[in-house]
């Protein structure tokens, strides 16, 4: 098999080796998931993680991580007061606002 077709055939329909706890992760991400989504996402993400596994073939001893490809250090700006957007403009985009504030459901009993 050619290298590229080997590459594409990494997505098998077999059960993935990786299993993940979708409801737990969804809770961490503050995302409600349906039973159907749990059923779909589990194996799909498992297969993606199976593919990702190939990174383990590489020896990365002593390699520095890259957070940004084009490195910039210590970006500073003048500490000057500038105008910000009007409060009204910002609040107009909020789903619920009153008295110049964002409104959310009661947090404390």
């Amino acid at each position: 098999m050619s290298e590229l077709s080997k590459f594409f055939n990494q997505m098998s329909t077999d059960s993935p080796h990786h299993t993940i706890d979708v409801p737990y992760l969804a809770r961490l991400a503050r995302l409600e998931v349906t039973p159907e989504e749990i059923e779909i996402f589990g194996p799909q993400i498992g297969r993606i993680l199976d593919h990702v596994e190939q990174m383990n073939k590489l020896d990365i001893t002593g390699i520095e991580p890259t957070a940004h490809a084009i490195t910039v250090f210590d970006v500073i700006r003048e500490d000057a007061v500038t105008e910000s957007l009007p409060k009204k403009t910002i609040l107009e985009n909020a789903p619920h606002n009153a008295n110049g504030l964002f409104v959310v459901p009661k947090v404390l009993d």
């Binding site: 993940i20 979708v22 992760l25 991400a29 995302l31 998931v33 996402f41 799909q44 993400i45 459901p105």
Partner: peptide, 26 residues
């Protein structure tokens, strides 16, 4: 507040976005 986050995001995001958020969280 919790259900505000969870339900808003459940209704607002499409399937691919949810999948990537879960993978990224993992």
């Amino acid at each position: 507040l919790l259900s505000l986050y969870e339900k808003t995001r459940a209704e607002g995001f499409g399937r691919e976005v949810k999948r990537r958020i879960i993978l990224g969280t993992y």
